[in-house]
Amino acid sequence: MTLTYTQVWGLILGLAALTALIKAMGPVLLGGRALPPWFSRVTVLMAPTLLSALVVTSLLAAGRSWSVGAHTVGVVIAALMLWRRCSLVLCVVVAVLVTAGLRAI
């Protein structure tokens, strides 16, 4: 861990301020007005792109190398269940149980 105690507070407050700012920006500045279409096409794609990057790296990478672990198996099973439209609560519970189960073996 490289961040100091003060740096962690800086990170938390910075993230809180930026999140509040981003959430306020749409309703305040752009109230009702339309944005150029290219702008919204990019912001709309930001979520699937980043969510995918986050899911993939949390599943298949550890630090600076590729790796798979018990959680990879747990999440893949949950992914199949999500695909079959099982409830999110159930999928999360199964992912945790499978992961914990494999690590116990």
Binding site: K23, G26, P27, L50
Partner: peptide
């Protein structure tokens, strides 16, 4: 910190789009 704040804010970028969408209803 900078990389962490940037990653967090980019992830939040979708709230910009969502905020724009709800704006007329507020």
């Amino acid at each position: 910190i900078v990389a962490a704040l940037t990653a967090g804010s980019l992830m939040n970028a979708r709230f910009l789009a969502m905020g724009i969408a709800v704006a007329p209803s507020l």
